[in-house]
């Protein structure tokens, strides 16, 4: 990667994005319908939460706006994730279809190619709109003072959450090097963890809390950042509230090392049609 200047990498990244955008715009109607469908699917959880709280007003001291604010982190960070790292999400397929072989023959960093080659605009919009709707409706009514420290914290937490999710997907991508079909296992772990994270961590038994802090650190994507702003439950260690970017960076670094190990032992599936 050393032979390329930062500038040329940026230009290339821009060209890649441009191609992706053209791809998305090729089927305007179909893509907008898919984005709408994703929006509807993701809104189910929001509407259910809304209906429950319409009836009960609060659960363990959490009010509707606070719950939805907690929820908004999941959508915004996932939206950023599919905008920036859709290539990592689809890496499984890339290995199985043999497309990954093409990347190996090019004189560019592999991770750079994977990340820049694919942007899922449709899913970005589908999830992003839910996230923005929730954020706009809650962020200014749950008593957060949006000074520069808090805003900076918010941005860092969002980036950290995005990278945590990217790491989880990259981890499952690692296993596909050793010719294991991991898509199901990954979806099982990722989306169930995400479902659990939709509600405050304090609602769950200790075992699940530990799982979401130490094993699949989804609590750093939304619970602890929201907790920093709202200070609802006092039962967790204060330090967790500031760890999201650290967890993200550390996890990504470790998984990246494992991934590099995987690339070295990679033997193609021989599926490539090119």
């Amino acid at each position: 990667m050393g032979k390329h200047s930062m500038r040329s990498l940026f230009v290339l990244f821009f060209k890649y994005s441009n191609m992706n955008l053209k791809l998305a715009l090729e089927y305007k109607l179909n893509r907008s319908l898919i984005a709408l469908a994703i929006f509807c699917r993701e809104m189910i959880g929001v509407v259910v939460m809304f209906l429950i709280l319409l009836r009960f007003l609060h659960i363990r001291g959490w009010e509707i706006h606070e719950m939805l604010f907690l929820y908004s982190f999941l959508f915004l960070s996932y939206s950023l994730f599919v905008l920036l790292f859709a290539g990592i999400r689809d890496f499984d397929n890339m290995v199985h279809s043999g497309d990954f072989d093409r990347l190996l023959t090019r004189p560019l960093g592999l991770m750079y190619q994977i990340i820049s080659a694919r942007i899922d605009f449709t899913a970005t919009i589908g999830h992003g709109v839910v996230g923005i709707v929730l954020f706009m409706n809650t962020a200014f009514s749950v008593g957060i003072e949006w000074n520069w420290q808090n805003s900076l914290y918010y941005v860092l937490a969002l980036i950290g959450g995005t990278i945590i999710q990217a790491s989880l997907f990259l981890l499952s991508a690692c296993f596909s090097f050793w010719a294991v079909k991991t898509e199901n296992l990954r979806n099982l772990i990722f989306f169930n963890a995400r479902r659990i994270a939709g509600y405050p961590l304090s609602f769950y038994p200790v075992f699940i809390q530990k799982l979401l802090i130490f094993v699949i650190p989804f609590s750093f994507v939304n619970y602890f950042p929201a907790q920093y702003f709202l200070r609802k439950d006092g039962s967790f260690w204060e330090g967790y509230l500031y760890l999201t970017p650290v967890v993200g960076a550390l996890l990504f670094y470790l998984v990246f090392l494992l991934w590099k190990l995987g690339v070295r032992s990679y033997t193609s599936t021989g599926n490539s049609v090119y």
Binding site: N30, L33, I34, L36, A37, I38, C40, R41, M43, I44, V47, V48
Partner: peptide
């Protein structure tokens, strides 16, 4: 029909 199926599912669920 992905979008139709997904929207239908959302309606059924809710």
């Amino acid at each position: 029909t992905f979008s139709l199926v997904t929207i239908k599912d959302a309606a059924v669920m809710l």
